[in-house]
């Protein structure tokens, strides 16, 4: 086993077996190294590359990864796990661009990414592409060369996709029990949670359009929103009268949050006074989630209480089956009728 490879990419099965072979146990020192790895990742959003290539140093690198994830598993906090995964993916990605083709292929195999070489480009089956592309405008399927179920990507894009797959791999914690003794150290990591809880920001989100609500929910779950989504969200919230400080508070939940960048961006947006993109533009960014038929998300409130309310109602009537929005007494009766009928027939 190439130990250097395993230390660079500690999420691989090779790394796991190297760790087992080394006979290192999850003792206090190992846990401490994991705690340190997680602390650096969570506080700075980054992780340094390997400093020393001694065998023993490499093994401890792998061990620190494994124990960091064990600590995260003990907490099972989505924000911390995602933020940690972003840092690990960035670290791995820094190696990828200088990596040999052979090692890249090995990693792709590990990540279940079936890239095929095609001249200077690569081809990837579309379900894998959909799952792991970085979801920015450049990666929209409409602008891609796709044929026979395979999407064409450049070598650079291939690495970006690998980075996303690594992030997903690191962020997916195993379904395992953690010894109780790990808890005290793990709890210390909670310090890295965003200080302002989201709930303290007053949001009357019930009147926000579905696209904005969706972004807020995804942000709350510490998902990594693409740049265009963050941009539109900030523009919308600024226009709805929220203060920059409050908006920055919201973004604290983003796993790659950096206060400086966020503050700069939000204040820049406010200063520029950008107009809200229209629904068509939102759609082309891939962040429209419903067909609510208003020309722009800022019109949603008005539409919802006016013409739009009417339109949805008739839509529901003529539409194909869907969930009834609010059950009427007649519906309850009817439902009971079917349920009774069904229980008789089974």
């Amino acid at each position: 086993m190439d130990l250097l490879f395993a230390a660079k990419y500690p999420f691989t099965t090779g790394a796991r077996s190297a760790l087992l072979e080394s006979g290192i146990s999850m003792d206090e020192d190992t846990l401490q190294s994991g705690y340190e790895r997680a602390t650096v990742a969570l506080s700075t959003g980054k992780l340094p590359k390997i400093a020393a290539e001694l065998q023993s140093a490499l093994v401890s690198q792998i061990a620190s990864y494994a124990s960091a994830r064990m600590l995260l598993l003990a907490l099972n906090n989505r924000y911390l796990t995602n933020r940690y995964a972003v840092a690990e993916a960035k670290r791995a990605s820094a190696y990828l661009s200088g990596e040999s083709e052979q090692n890249l292929e090995l990693l792709c195999q590990e990540l279940a990414l079936r890239f095929e070489k095609n001249g200077r480009q690569y081809l990837l089956p579309f379900p894998e592409y959909l799952r792991f592309n970085p979801h920015s405008v450049d990666y929209r399927l409409s602008n891609r060369k796709i044929s026979g179920g395979l999407v064409q990507v450049s070598p650079h894009e291939r690495i970006r996709i690998m980075e996303e797959a690594i992030k997903a791999r690191v962020g997916k914690l195993p379904d395992a029990k953690v010894p109780a003794s790990v808890q005290p150290l793990a709890k210390k990591l909670l310090l890295h949670l965003p200080r302002e809880e989201l709930a303290t920001v007053k949001l009357d989100s019930s009147n926000y359009p579905p696209c904005i609500q969706n972004m807020l929910v995804r942000l709350r779950m510490s998902e990594n929103l693409p740049h265009t989504a963050r941009w539109t969200l900030a523009v919308y919230l600024l226009r709805s009268g929220m203060k920059p400080e409050e908006i920055i508070g919201l973004f604290k939940n983003a796993p790659d949050y950096s206060e400086g960048t966020t503050r700069y961006q939000v204040e820049y947006l406010k200063q520029k006074g950008y107009a809200m993109p229209s629904c068509v533009t939102m759609d082309s960014y891939g962040i429209c989630v419903a067909r609510c038929r208003c020309a722009s998300p800022v019109h949603y409130r008005k539409e919802k209480h006016g013409r739009f309310a009417e339109a949805t109602r008739t839509d529901l009537q003529k539409g194909e089956p869907g969930t009834p929005s609010q059950e009427t007494p007649e519906q309850t009766l009817a439902k009971k009728k079917w349920e009774d009928a069904k229980s008789r027939s089974q």
């Binding site: 089956p125 379900p127 409409s142 602008n143 759609d283 082309s284 989630v289």
Partner: peptide
Amino acid sequence: QSILELSREERRELVDYITGTGIEFASF
């Protein structure tokens, strides 16, 4: 088999593709 586990967003991207949503003239 390949599409059974696609998420909502991934399915949405497929629909956007066939309706040509998000086509950028500049990239063609």
